[in-house]
């Protein structure tokens, strides 16, 4: 009996779903949930973590990331404009800077700022304490990445936009600020979000400075909990809290993209 292509597609999809369901059930049956729960989801440990995991750790992760990202964005914009400048030395400095901080692991930057600065300038620390170090380190690394993204975004804005703005009498700077850069940022919203999410996770590297209790962010807090309770629950909880930051962020950005799309 010949089957129509549509029927055949439906049957094949049905088989795929069935195989998937069998697999999931098999895994669930094989898992020892009692053991899993004791190791990763211990309610006593969870109860102990609150409220500090929110009021200290989550809050610090958000503050560190926000400061680092903001500084990085400004730095990235400046570097991008330098890369596009007609002045040779600006371009060279920006290129060198970008290649340096894109290439170095973020951890190395954190260590260099924490321990290198006091050695290089005796008696001096990065101003602003812990927050100063995170802001600077995340900003340098993030800025170097974002500079190239922003430059590409600016170059993706059609040349006619700058010409139209100039033909209305706007200066180059005014045209950049009012016409070109806003359009560039719409184009590069997805990669910028990506960078923000990466920085959220990189903010954990601040542990190298040796954090006071009030300055702990999520990862450090989770590890401390893990050590003191001899149980993995602490890490599971902070892992979920990272998702609490990044998933809504992704949703907000998707909404913004959809809105920008409508204006296009």
């Amino acid at each position: 009996m010949a089957l129509s292509p549509r029927k055949r597609a439906r049957i094949s999809r049905g088989i795929q779903y069935a195989v998937l369901a069998v697999l999931v059930v098999a895994i669930l049956l094989a898992v020892d949930f009692g053991e899993l729960k004791r190791a990763f989801w211990n309610t006593e440990v969870i109860a102990e973590m609150f409220p500090d995991v929110l009021t200290v750790a989550l809050k610090n992760t958000i503050i560190y990331t926000a400061c680092g990202f903001s500084f990085g964005l400004v730095l990235g914009l400046v570097l991008a404009l330098m890369r596009l400048s007609s002045v040779g030395p600006y371009r060279w400095v920006a290129t060198g800077f970008i290649e340096l901080f894109r290439g170095l692991p973020a951890l190395v930057v954190f260590i260099a700022l924490t321990f290198g600065i006091p050695l290089a300038f005796p008696g001096r620390l990065v101003p602003g304490g812990t927050l100063g170090v995170v802001t600077l380190a995340l900003g340098l690394v993030g800025g170097a990445y974002m500079a190239e993204t922003i430059r590409a975004g600016i170059q993706a804005v059609p040349k006619g936009q700058m010409e139209a703005a100039r033909s209305l009498g706007m200066s180059h700077t005014r045209a950049m600020v009012s016409i070109v850069i806003p359009q560039a940022f719409r184009i590069i919203l997805p990669p910028l979000t990506n960078e923000l999410i990466l920085l959220t996770k990189d903010s954990s590297l601040i542990y190298v400075v040796g954090l006071a209790a009030g300055a702990q962010e999520l990862t450090k807090f989770g590890r401390e909990t893990m050590n003191s309770t001899n149980n993995m629950t602490g890490l599971v909880v902070v892992g979920l809290l990272y998702l609490v930051i990044t998933v809504p962020l992704a949703i907000v950005v998707r909404r913004m993209e959809a809105r920008a799309e409508r204006a296009r």
Binding site: A164, I179, Q183, A260, A263
Partner: peptide
């Protein structure tokens, strides 16, 4: 301009 070049944003 031939291509209008309105500011799309």
């Amino acid at each position: 301009f031939q291509q209008f070049n309105l500011f799309p944003h």
